[in-house]
Nucleic acid binder design. Sequence first.
DNA 1: CAAATACATTTAAACTTTTAAATATTTGGT
DNA 2: ACCAAATATTTAAAAGTTTAAATGTATTTG
Lengths: 89, 89
Amino acid sequence: MENRFVEKATGAISDKYRLAILLELSRKGSLTSTDVQELTGLSQPCVSHHVKLLTDSGLVDSKKEGRNVHLSLNKTCIQQLSDFIEKLT
Amino acid sequence: MENRFVEKATGAISDKYRLAILLELSRKGSLTSTDVQELTGLSQPCVSHHVKLLTDSGLVDSKKEGRNVHLSLNKTCIQQLSDFIEKLT
DNA sequence: CAAATACATTTAAACTTTTAAATATTTGGT
DNA sequence: ACCAAATATTTAAAAGTTTAAATGTATTTG
């Protein structure tokens, strides 16, 4: 397990908007960037920036379909992070 | 589970020095602030600041004994964070 | 009680992150 | 081909974080 992954992934979670996105993805399974804009009330470029942090961290996958981006959780990656943290104990 | 806890705890982890402290605490069980200074090579005030972030987040406990501070992992808290992340999947 | 040790606080500079406005790109519908 | 919709990029300002120097506060030891 790479420390750099853990730093990026925890950094991606540690923001109220990004945490809200992760929780909503967990509830709904998938979201578009427009959904995220409605969810957070942030400007479109700002949403684009937060989404990029989430996808760059590996926690979120994005798939472009037509002009929409479909976001979903990368469950493997989330499980890896959870396991890493649990193993600290 | 409070989102604010998750934000603070993940924020506390998402730094190379603080992650190194957590890993060393995991290996060794406990450390003093002086140990952390040796581990990281950071200045004493800077160590004091990072240790404060870790203890404020709840992930690390500190107990003052004489003039030393003994740091240790709060395993309950770490387990709670791990569980929260796992439940996203 | 004086000196030394361990740690905390204050301050200020350097750096990073967050945000939105402006603009660009890509795709879909007419 | 044109227009609208969805998203990305660039830029710049505001806010937050990280760092160390200087200083402060307990606590132990001689």
